[in-house]
Nucleic acid binder design. Sequence first.
DNA 1: ACGTATTTGTTCGTATGTATC
DNA 2: GGATACATACGAACAAATACG
Lengths: 242, 242
Amino acid sequence: MRREIRPAMPVVRTKLTTTVFEQLVSFVVSENWKPGDRIPPERELCQQLGIARTSLREALKAMELVGMLDSRIGDGTFVCPRSEFLSRPLLWAFTGTDRDELQEIMEARTIIEESLAGLAAERATPEEIGVIGDAVQQNRDAIARGESIIAADMAFHLAVSSAAHNGVLRNAVQLLRNLMRQWILYKLMIPDVPETVLKRHVKIYKAIATRKPAAARSAMRLHLEETMKLVTHVVKDRGPKG
Amino acid sequence: MRREIRPAMPVVRTKLTTTVFEQLVSFVVSENWKPGDRIPPERELCQQLGIARTSLREALKAMELVGMLDSRIGDGTFVCPRSEFLSRPLLWAFTGTDRDELQEIMEARTIIEESLAGLAAERATPEEIGVIGDAVQQNRDAIARGESIIAADMAFHLAVSSAAHNGVLRNAVQLLRNLMRQWILYKLMIPDVPETVLKRHVKIYKAIATRKPAAARSAMRLHLEETMKLVTHVVKDRGPKG
DNA sequence: ACGTATTTGTTCGTATGTATC
DNA sequence: GGATACATACGAACAAATACG
C-alpha cells in the first residue's frame, strides 16, 4: 500500500543551497544587482530568503569562488563585473591543465563566434559597428603605446558578439573567453602577435561594416583557428609540466 | 602591545575556505581522487584537515555547484567526470539572459547543433553511429505504438551531440534542449509531426553514417529551422499566457 | 519487509577579527 | 579610543535520505 502516487510534481530533489544559489545568480545576471553594488549583509539576506545563515553562506561562497561576488571582511559583499565571471585562477586548475579540454573550449568558441560574426554583419546597428571600430582603435593605440592589448582584444570580441543580437550565445561565448583569459594573455606576449591580431580584427571589422556575412564568418574562423594553433603551442611551453 | 609585526607577507587575506578549496581541487586534478570515486565523509575529512565542518562544507558546496563534485544524501560525495566540470557554469550563461526569448534559444541551438552534426559525420565511431541508429529505431517504435516520441527525440539529438566529440558543446546544447523541453512536447502533439520528425532524423542519420559532413549539417539545419517555425507557431497558440 | 547505521542537509548559537566612522 | 557593522569560523544538534544487514 503505497501512500502517494508521486503527484503532479516529478520535481528533482531541490536542495536548498542550490535553489538559493540559482536565485542569487539570477539577481546578478539580470542586473538586479549591478557590478560594483554591495549586496545586503548576510544576516539581512538570509532573513529575506527565509533560510539559515549557513545555507546562504554556502551559496555565497560558491559564487565568490567562480568570480561573481567578492566578499571583504568588515566591509561587505560586492558584485563583480561580468568580464571576471569564471576568470578566477582557481578555475584554471581544472580547465587549463587538460589540453584536450582546452582544445574543446577553443573549438566551441570558434564555432560560436564564427556564426556570431556572420550574424553581426547582418544585424549590427550603425552604433554597434561604431563600438566595434572603437575596439579596433583601442587595440591600435595599445600597440602604439607598447601596452598589452588583452583588454582591447576582449572588448573587440564582446562588441562583435553583442552586435549579433543573440544574448544566449553572447553570454556563453564570453564565459568561454574568460576561461581562456590567461592563455590569451600568454599568446599576446609572443612577439609580433599583437600586430597580427590587429590585422585580422581589422579584416573582420571591415567585413561586418560592409555587410558581408560570409566574409565576416571566414575572417573570424581564420582568426580563431590561428589563435588555436598559438594557444596549443603556448600550452606546450608553459603548460602544467613546464 | 601587539605581538606580531605583520611579517613579510604584505597582504592577501588567505581565507580558510579558499585554502580548502585549493586543496580539494588539487586532490581532483592530481587524480588522487578519480572520477567516480567517493571521497571521505564530511566529518572525517574536516578532522583530517583540522577545520570545522561548516568551513569544509562551504568549499564542498562550491565545488558541487561548479560541477566537480556530486553529493547524495545518505550515500556520499562523488567526483564527477571531467566532461561535466563546465556544464553548470554554461548553464548560468544561458539562463543569464533571463528574459531569454525562445527565439534566441532556438537560434543558438540551431547554430550549435548544425556544427555538431557536421563534426559527428567526421568523428563518430561505429559504436556511436550505432547509438544514433538505435535512437532512430526507438523513435520508429514509439510511433508504431502510438506513444510520445519525446524521449527518442532527445536521445537522438544527444547521441549526435556525443558523437561530435566536444563535451563543452554537447553539454551546452543539451541544456538548451532541456530549456525547450516543454515546447518540444507541445510540438510533438501536433498531428503528423512525429512522422515528419522521424523522416528528418533518418536523413541526418544517413548523412552521418555515410560520412557526409556537409549533408549532415544542412539536414540538421533544415530540421531545426522547421522545428523553429513549429515552435513559434505553437507558442502563439498556447504561449505563456495559456 | 524492517530496522539500524551511515551520510549529507539544515539550523541555531556563539565567539573572533577586521574595517569604517 | 570607542562604537558599530560586517564577514569569518567553530561546534552542536536534529532532520532526511540512503545503504545494508
